[in-house]
Write a protein that binds this DNA or RNA. Structure first.
Lengths: 149, 149
DNA sequence: TTCGTTGCAAAGGATTTGCATATTC
DNA sequence: GAATATGCAAATCCTTTGCAACGAA
């Protein structure tokens, strides 16, 4: 699917989500969604806030936080913690479920992120659900390396 | 190994680590290490700070932070992020490498933690190292559930 | 018009930092 | 005695909250 179609599609998903939950369809929410899906990277709140500002669509940081929370609940983005105190986000639709290899520099800062898929995770998950008699709602798997890329 | 022996052993490891790195052997550092290894649970900074205070061995929060950082570098504890903004820690010596299932309540607070081991993680790791030609230094794998335990 | 959302600034929680004091070496 | 670690408080970073103004329904 080409990018404009993806954006159209996630926009519709957000429309439906807001109708179902009786939320208001503000410009800010749709613009932020569009910016995220136009961008091919993982980002933190400041990255997104600055990107919006530089693109001439400044919104308050509170709105960035509110909207990210909304998009998370709508299942349109995912949130990550890479061994530091900052939350990172990424789009999640039309984007296979995947895990991450995090490349760290000397100071432990995130230098690069590589995605991978491995079906063995799903089999571990299925086994745990059976053994513990629980329903697993999600997982986070991060491998860390200091190798240069 | 019985607990007193474990504590003796990790104490020696810390002694060596401090000698190798020309760090000072303060009471606080050894006491905190002992408290952690006497305790069978995952904890955050406040849990440990309060535990020390209630046990009549009060130290400042800055010292708790500093010492946890030191113990991390010495490989004597591990640090985790369970989808919230708090860091959790656990002892890591004489304690198999393992991963975690996190039980969350309605508000997303950590209610319970179950540990598990699965060799499939190591095989995924080995494959990634080969494919990406990197050296993986560690990983974090967390499964999340809202089931009651 | 109504009521949810935005924006701003203040508050909050976790962690770090600066500096005087205490302690190890 | 020299130099590092501790303790306290202030500072910082990330995130949440309160409230007036705005805008969608």
């Amino acid at each position: 699917m080409a990018k404009p179609e993806i954006i159209k599609s996630v926009t519709e998903i957000l429309h439906k989500y807001m109708e179902q939950n009786k939320l208001r369809k503000t410009q800010e929410r749709f613009q932020i969604l569009k910016f995220i899906y136009d961008w091919d990277r993982h980002f933190d709140v400041d990255d997104l806030y600055n990107h919006l500002k530089e693109s001439g669509f400044a919104v308050s940081k509170a709105t960035v936080y509110n909207t990210l929370e909304l998009l998370l609940e709508a299942g349109l983005i995912r949130k990550h913690h890479f061994r530091n105190n900052t939350s990172y986000y990424e789009k999640s639709y039309f984007n296979h479920s995947h895990d991450h290899v995090i490349f760290l520099d000397e100071e432990g800062n995130v230098k690069e992120i590589v995605e991978f898929c491995d079906p063995r995770i799903d089999s571990i998950k299925a086994d745990l659900e059976k053994i513990l008699d629980i329903n697993i709602t999600g997982h986070d798997l991060y491998f860390y390396t200091k190798s240069k890329k």
